[in-house]
Design a protein around this nucleic acid. Structure first.
Lengths: 170, 170, 170, 170
DNA sequence: TTTT
DNA sequence: TTTT
């Protein structure tokens, strides 16, 4: 055992997020994001570009944030893990789809500095706390009500779970 | 606002961890780890090597794990963030020291396949849970029997806070 | 444009590498590696484990290294990028497979401290040079003979292309 | 040996880059970038923010790009490695400074979508090529002149050395 | 000293 | 299907 399974992406949404809800009430958000790389052909000297599309799935609180603040064209930073799911085609055959899972251990940051293109801003009212300040209580035993307020952080802390680690249950 | 501050290291401990306790009872573990890179000199063709030493500080539960399982020579994977602290030299002048902070948002994995050299193995009894599995939510819910050998996971999940996110208070 | 597409994995090979050669003579190596995560079920308190399998493809010189030094069970660190390829099933339908591409911009490090299980060691005689030492000449056009010999580095530098940037054509 | 030494940052420049030239003619660019994390205090419920400042040093071609396109306030993605340099204070005592080195193995991406605030755009005329397309020729020995022109990529490929791997000597 |  |  043991292992590291980490994906880091910066790219743009190809369409608005698709959000659905679990029986538990938890949100699950799916997006497609494009990452591009460009280079110049060795021989022709012509500029080349290749775009890769990724299926990213957000779980829990971050899914709500995705739903609320991201839209077609949004540029984001995402940190998650790979998961390949198996499913059955209509022909009964096995199919596999690889997704980037962004859950409590992942991160999302909005990179559209100002204006998200749509609303009045890309601010995300979501809060996190540097771990070693978490006092001994292991986990955000928060309670404070008002969630966002003047909310601002467009993406939260720069690392992991903190991003979901706020005091407010969405 | 917004920002990503991430450090990923794989290297070996130069000495045993130094552990101290906060007034709160929380442990803080300090280690030095070396990362090396080698290359061949363009001109002489001679092999070159450069070793870089890093100060890594662990907070909370992971500090206890470090204390218990790591020792001089241990090879580890570490994920944390940079923090530069300011302090006063004896001459009253400002000094700065940069450290890699591994807190609840970071990760540590032991990479010494078997046996850490000291005890009876490098297994780390520390548990984490994929976020969206939290509670009832649709997940592997696996059941497969005996994981393998006598337990093994030297480090836990591959991502973020999960590593500290277990149900068991050490 | 713009984009980051990065994958970092630490896991074990499920089987020996499969190597083939391009018309150009370049090697391409395919491996499957497993990453595992473990956690303790919130409710039952039972230890859970989930293993994820990844298809990793190496191009060029690193493919030769993979062929020569990796085998079933090898533990490695890999840094690459995601690429989803489209292909046609026998039924004429489109299928998609996502792979982690490790090319000149990626990295591979062997993590089996000593002994790879097979030969007399996991050392990889491969050389890289810190970029800013590269003198102005763009790239190490070195030529010096004896590659490995006292060589040791099981994986090379910790970053990018350097890993393939040695002077010795394998 | 062996090791990984990787830093990933997303932040803003606190001031314009400082560029100097080596005897070899190579540029070296220094910047300071800030990464912030915010969280809500567990007790007071007040929003907290912590800003960390990083010294980033660019070598070679990328230093020229930094000089040309970045300025105070620019938001960037940076991938490099840690290096602590030792120097002598005026009092003759040893001092240490930790920097993030971005050389041929690192990456930089501009994240200010449109307009960098200063010039007519943040486009960076710099070209890179996916490695496995490099055919056998080891390295892009290209030559085509006109650097920018149709240029576009604000940051280059998403991985490693490719970012410096263009055909145009700046 | 940057950003929000 | 996004971006530049």
């Amino acid at each position: 055992m043991a292992g590291v399974n980490k994906v880091i992406l910066i790219g743009n949404l190809g369409a608005d997020p698709e959000v659905r809800y679990m029986p538990s009430g938890d949100a699950v958000a799916n997006i497609r994001i494009a990452t591009s790389e460009t280079w110049k052909d060795k021989n022709t000297g012509e500029r080349q570009e290749r775009t890769e599309w990724h299926n990213v799935v957000f779980f829990g609180k971050i899914a709500e944030i995705v739903k609320q603040y991201l839209h077609k064209g949004s540029k984001i930073y995402v940190e998650g893990k790979l998961r390949t799911k198996k499913w059955q085609g209509q022909d009964g055959q096995d199919r596999y789809t690889t997704e980037i899972i962004v859950d409590i251990n992942g991160t999302m940051q909005m990179l559209d500095s100002r204006s998200g293109g749509g609303g009045m801003g890309s601010s995300v009212p979501f809060d996190d706390a540097p771990a070693h300040q978490s006092s001994r209580g292991g986990r955000p035993q928060s309670s404070s009500p008002a969630p966002s307020s003047g909310g601002s952080s467009p993406g939260g802390s720069s690392q992991g779970a903190a991003d979901f680690d706020d005091d407010i249950p969405f």
